[in-house]
Simulated scan of single mutants.
Amino acid sequence: MRRLPPQNMEENLSQLIDLAPHLQDDLLNNVDQPLKVQRCKVKGRDYLVSEFNRDGDSCRSPWSNEYDPPSMESPVPSPKLRRLEIAANEAFDTYREMYYEKGVSSAYFWDDDNDAFAGAVLFKKVGEDGRKMKGAWDSIHVFRATERGRNAHYKLTSTIMLYTITDRDETGKLNLSGSMTRQTEADYPYDEPQAHIANIGRIIEDMELKMRNSLQEVYFGKTRDIVNGLRSVDSLIESRKQAEIQKELVSRLARREKDLGKAKQNRSDT
């Protein structure tokens, strides 16, 4: 599933569940799907829908803490963790504006045990340029924070799903897509609940930068090399002219070296 196009993930997952219905729970829990955008009816703000805020057919808004459609028995974070979740959503909304300019972000926290809690920080940006270009970036960061005295230990699993589709005269049809998953662990000082937000933001920022650089250098760089090796943007006539000029320059340099060699030989004979 990680090697199939992210934009077709939902359809492929549905077909796979039809083939192996006994694996439905495992597949839904382990296969990352592209995020969906939904609007909070109470606060009037967009939020992201994923398995981290879904309970059955209802989805919880991080802005109002209410489910849509309403569900009285669905889980919600404790009051203490809810206050931290509200602050995290405001902080990561600023982060989204700085790094993505547009798009949607959401953060969801849930209680784990007495000394730990877990959460997910999500980002999605969709770009379209009419019918000639479209693409999407989905970042899914799932973490677990464990308090250890004055320090906190964080374990992060990050997944990025990216696709870009173009159909232009100069490039033709191009569909480039894929996903990447990385894990990391870190310890940071902890003295108050709000420190968790800064620590989680730091580790997510570092991870996103590393994954973005890897995508740019390895995947897009390799694709660019392959395309440049297969197809040139210059016309065939210009390429032939440059080849003839290069051949003529090489020939003249060879004749000049030959003439210099003869002149040196004549001087030595004299």
Rank of each mutant, 00 (worst) to 15 (best):
D57T: 13
C59T: 12
R60E: 09
R60S: 08
R60W: 07
S61N: 00
P62Q: 00
P62L: 03
S64W: 13
S64V: 10
N65C: 11
N65E: 11
N65L: 14
E66F: 06
E66K: 14
Y67C: 04
P69W: 10
S71F: 06
M72H: 14
E73R: 14
V76L: 15
P77L: 06
P77R: 04
S78P: 09
P79R: 11
K80H: 14
L81Q: 05
R82G: 04
R83L: 14
L84Y: 08
L84R: 08
L84Q: 11
E85W: 09
I86M: 15
A88D: 01
A88G: 07
N89G: 07
N89K: 05
E90D: 15
A91P: 07
F92Q: 01
F92K: 01
F92C: 06
D93Q: 13
T94N: 12
T94V: 12
T94G: 09
R96Y: 14
M98P: 04
Y99W: 15
Y99P: 02
Y100L: 15
Y100Q: 11
V104F: 09
V104T: 13
V104R: 06
S105T: 12
S105C: 12
S106P: 03
S106I: 01
Y108M: 02
Y108C: 02
W110K: 12
D112V: 07
D113E: 11
D115E: 10
F117S: 01
F117D: 00
A118R: 10
G119P: 03
K124P: 00
G127F: 06
E128T: 08
E128P: 00
D129L: 13
G130S: 06
K132F: 10
K132H: 12
K132E: 13
M133F: 10
M133D: 02
K134G: 03
K134L: 04
K134P: 00
G135K: 09
G135Y: 11
G135P: 05
A136C: 13
W137S: 05
D138R: 00
S139L: 07
S139M: 06
F143T: 00
R144G: 01
A145T: 05
T146K: 15
R148I: 07
G149Q: 04
R150H: 07
R150S: 11
A152K: 09
H153T: 07
H153Y: 13
K155V: 12
K155D: 10
L156H: 02
S158K: 03
T159M: 08
I160D: 00
M161L: 10
M161V: 01
M161W: 04
Y163H: 13
